[in-house]
Amino acid sequence: MKTRIMAGGVAGAFILAALAVPMSASAATNAQLSVLHGIPGVTVDVWVNGKLTIDDFKTGTLAGPLSLAPATYSVAITASDATSATDKVVIGPVDLPLADGGNYTAVAHLTTDNKPTATLFTNDISKTAAGEGRLTVRHVAAAPAVDVLAGSTPVIEGLTNPKEQILNLAPATISASVVAAGTTTPALIGPADVPVVEGQNTIVYAYGSLEGENLAVAVQTITGLHTPPTGIPAGQTGEAARAESTQQTQSAVGIGALGLLLAAAAAAVVVVARRNAGSRA
């Protein structure tokens, strides 16, 4: 029954698609949208296309991902006691163009000079190489250019708000610090343990305000980007194959000998039967 309804749905979709929309539209994949709140000290509401979508959204929290048909969405961020998308507006409304199958994070954050803004980032969801993970670092803080250190080695240099840098790395937990560009101390953020996991994009956001002394880190993870090894070559000499074929030959010989015995026995039976028959005649 279910199958029939679904089949009807498919046929209906195709017919209507043919009538109403270009064929390409029927192949559309939803976009994934996450929203990060990176403005310290303020709880907000998020309105998408005029509708309240995230209520009482707190600093340092991540919402989503929301699965949305590809389109341009209007997003407004207001005070948490606002009564509509146009009441007590903190940011926006801004237009977020979401493409077919895209993966995005919209971040509410501060500009370099401490003003609330929103930035739409496109997340890298391409497959990671076998045995690798991905680290994305985004500067969304009211702070000048920074370097990111792994231990004491700079791995990202001169990153500015609102830019990102992407590294593909062997999986490990990295002791990461954020410092002013061109320096190694003092750490503005960290050191903090950042996990780089195989097949995962770990997205790290530096947010808050240097002047406000509330710089912090937020993390988003996107899993399922894994690539398997190319194979498992698990034999070197062929010894096991040779041992197996020897064994089979031996069994074949064994079966042959048994067969001869059975044939001989059968012949004997026939002979006996004939003798019996002969004696009866």
Partner: peptide, 10 residues
């Protein structure tokens, strides 16, 4: 747009 859940991003 349906409402979406939120999680601690620390």
């Amino acid at each position: 747009v349906p409402r979406i859940p939120t999680a601690d991003a620390s």
